[in-house]
Design a protein around this nucleic acid. Structure first.
Length: 105
DNA sequence: AGCTTGACTGTGG
DNA sequence: ACCACAGCCAAGC
């Protein structure tokens, strides 16, 4: 079993509507504190396959890390779920960051 | 085995 | 706040 990949997928699937997590946070919860870039890789390779809510993942600054059309799509999707933007590409992590239970098992 | 791709993150100026 | 650099890890070829 690919513990890391499986955990990352489950964690992302567990992010509720209107909430977000950061790449590094997801990596850390999947037992790879420096694995933010692997989370990126998984989003690329698995988001379609596993129907992941990829748009609920932002960087540590609360910014959308995508460009152009993908950025706009992510922004639309988040706004649809009630997330308000502080500026063009920034949201408040204090308000919207999700902290899952460790006990979910 | 080495190189490339990835939407990152922390540190220092 | 902004930019540049270094460190990080996994998958595909």
């Amino acid at each position: 079993m690919k513990a890391f990949t499986e955990k990352v997928i489950k964690i992302i699937q567990n992010i509720p509507s209107g909430q977000v997590m950061t790449y590094g946070q997801i990596a850390k919860l999947a037992d790879s504190p420096r694995g933010a870039r692997q989370v990126v890789r998984i989003l690329h390779s698995m988001s379609e396959k596993y129907n992941l809510p990829w748009y609920r993942v932002v960087n540590i600054r609360g910014e959308i890390s995508l460009a152009n059309e993908a950025f706009e799509q992510q922004k639309w999707l988040l706004e649809d779920e009630g997330v308000e933007f502080i500026s063009n590409r920034v949201i408040s992590l204090k308000e919207y960051q999700f902290y899952p239970d460790i006990d979910e098992g």
